[in-house]
Computed example of a mutant assay.
Amino acid sequence: MKITVDVDCTPEELRTFFGLPDVRPMQDALMKQIQDQMAASLHAMEPEAMFKVWLPAGMQGMEQLQKMLWSQFSHGSRPKEK
C-alpha cells in the first residue's frame, strides 16, 4: 500500500509551521555589509595594485620563465664534436 501526501505551502509557511526562525533580516544585513566592504576596497585600490594582488604568482612566474628562456638562448647549446 502506498500513501502520498502533497503539501502546498510556501517556504515561509513551512518554516513557521516547524517553528524555525526567520533568518532573512540577518542575511540581508550581512549581504549589505559585505557589499559595502567590497565597494570600499575596490574604490580604494588603483588598477595596478589590484593586478598585483590578483595575479602575484602568475606575473612573477611569467617573468621568471622569460628570464630562464633568455638565459638559455643567450648561452646556447652547441652540438658536441666527435
Rank of each mutant, 00 (worst) to 15 (best):
P56L: 01
Q66E: 15
L14T: 01
E46R: 12
E48Y: 05
V7F: 11
K32R: 10
P56R: 02
T10A: 04
M50S: 05
T16N: 10
T10Q: 04
Q72H: 08
A44R: 10
Q66C: 05
F73Y: 09
L65C: 04
I3Q: 13
M26V: 11
E63V: 13
S77A: 10
D36E: 12
D8S: 11
E13G: 06
R24M: 10
P11I: 06
G19Y: 01
E46Q: 11
K82T: 09
D8L: 13
M38F: 08
P47G: 01
P47V: 03
A39F: 03
A49R: 08
Q64L: 14
L69F: 12
E63K: 14
S71W: 04
A40S: 11
F18Q: 04
V23D: 09
A49N: 05
P25D: 02
A39V: 03
Q66M: 11
Q35T: 03
L42Y: 09
E46H: 06
W54R: 07
F18D: 02
V23F: 04
M45K: 07
M59F: 12
A44H: 04
D8T: 15
D6K: 15
V23E: 10
F51S: 09
P25W: 02
D8A: 10
P79H: 09
L55N: 07
D28K: 12
C9S: 13
Q35H: 05
L65P: 00
L14V: 05
A44P: 00
F18N: 03
M26P: 00
M59L: 14
H43C: 01
P21K: 04
A57N: 13
M68E: 13
R78A: 10
K2G: 01
Q27S: 06
Q72K: 14
M1A: 10
E13C: 03
E63C: 04
K82I: 06
L20P: 00
Q33F: 02
F17Y: 14
E63H: 11
T16Q: 15
K32I: 01
M26F: 09
D28Q: 13
V5L: 14
M26H: 12
K67T: 08
R15A: 09
F18S: 03
K52R: 15
S74L: 10
Q37L: 09
Q66W: 06
D36C: 00
D28A: 10
T10H: 03
D8K: 12
H75R: 15
L65D: 11
K82C: 03
Q27N: 08
E63T: 11
K52L: 05
L55I: 02
K80I: 12
M1W: 06
M50A: 11
L55A: 10
G58S: 08
Q60Y: 03
E12H: 09
S74V: 08
C9V: 07
M31W: 06
T4F: 09
Q27T: 06
V53N: 03
L55G: 00
L42N: 08
W54F: 14
K82D: 15
Q37H: 05
A39W: 01
A29N: 06
P25A: 01
T4H: 13
F17P: 03
T16D: 12
M50I: 06
A44Y: 01
E48G: 07
R15N: 08
L55Y: 12
M26S: 06
T4Q: 14
L69C: 04
V53G: 00
M68Q: 13
G58T: 09
A49P: 01
M59D: 02
K67N: 12
F17R: 07
V7C: 08
Q33P: 00
P47T: 04
M68Y: 10
G61P: 02
